[in-house]
């Protein structure tokens, strides 16, 4: 009895409820995706879900198209967001902290409300909904997620590196290319993760922005799950997980390289 009491009073024991919770609601559900993906409707092992994906041109096309849209969105977010993060973190160019808050603020607004606002803007300007609206909506939704991590890294950047480069005679352009860009790379990489991942996995947004004309991979998964095709939906989810895992690995290795370059 006393031993039992001591066990419960030890503080490391307090992690046990959460460990059980994690096993039940995080690990087990993910294992279920694997299980369902490799089963047919009767619970027998099969690879049919994956061969169905490869052989059906519609799902495969949607998949490739979604990756394309995600890449375009991510690149646009870098092109628009990097200069903004640079200006925001530069005390000479932007003194007010309110500016930073203004850029982060839209992140706190429900994504559907933001998307509907974009639809309203296009209606108001009498612009057609479609691919253009889709890309604008995605960039509009996820740009703050690119600016914030880059800004964060630039804020913490050691400015003596920049001063050292200037003292050693580097032109402003060289300083930017050889010092600022490599040092800010970790921020760009986490920005890429934060933009690429949601763009590839969104559903609903694309339907609303294109009047149901363009379907993204997330929508395909959602439709299959909603229509009771759980096994096929699970297989598609697994494919998405693999893509995200791959992006993660890619950005990780890049981050290492970037930080090495930064030191050299």
């Amino acid at each position: 009895m006393k031993q039992l009491l001591r066990f419960f009073l030890k503080r490391s024991t307090w992690s046990i409820p959460y460990a059980i919770f994690l096993l039940l609601f995080v690990v087990l559900p993910l294992l279920l995706i694997f299980l369902y993906a490799f089963q047919d409707a009767d619970g027998n092992f099969t690879l049919a879900n994956f061969s169905k994906f490869i052989s059906s041109p519609e799902a495969a096309n949607t998949f490739v198209y979604s990756i394309g849209i995600a890449i375009v969105t991510t690149v646009l977010c870098i092109l628009l967001g990097y200069p903004a993060a640079y200006i925001l973190s530069n005390a000479e160019l932007c003194r007010s902290k309110v500016m930073v808050v203004l850029f982060i603020l839209p992140m706190w607004i429900n994504i559907l409300v933001r998307t509907l606002a974009t639809v309203a803007l296009f209606d108001f300007l009498r612009l057609p909904l479609g691919e253009g609206a889709l890309i604008f909506g995605m960039v509009y939704n996820f740009l703050p997620f690119m600016i914030y991590p880059i800004y964060n890294v630039m804020q913490k950047m050691d400015h003596s590196y920049i001063e050292a480069a200037q003292d050693l005679g580097a032109s402003p352009m060289t300083v930017f290319r050889k010092v600022v860009v490599p040092l800010s790379m970790p921020g760009v990489m986490s920005g890429v993760m934060m933009v690429f991942m949601p763009t590839i996995s969104t559903f609903a947004i694309s339907e609303l922005l294109t009047m149901n004309n363009i379907k993204l991979f997330g929508t395909t998964i959602q439709e299959n799950i909603n229509n009771g095709m759980w096994n096929y939906g699970a297989a598609l989810s697994l494919i998405m997980l693999v893509i995200i895992f791959a992006t993660d690995l890619f950005s990780d290795s890049d981050e290492d390289r970037a930080s090495n370059e930064g030191i050299i």
């Binding site: 994690l22 559900p29 993910l30 279920l32 995706i33 991942m197 998964i221 759980w230």
Partner: peptide, 27 residues
């Protein structure tokens, strides 16, 4: 181990979290 498990819900896209929990509740 527990820190890694703790990171999973934050790294997973929402749709994956949603579907995995959906499968848990159905099964």
């Amino acid at each position: 181990v527990i820190n890694t498990l703790n990171n999973i819900p934050m790294l997973n896209p929402d749709i994956i979290t949603g579907i995995s929990l959906f499968l848990l509740f159905v099964s």
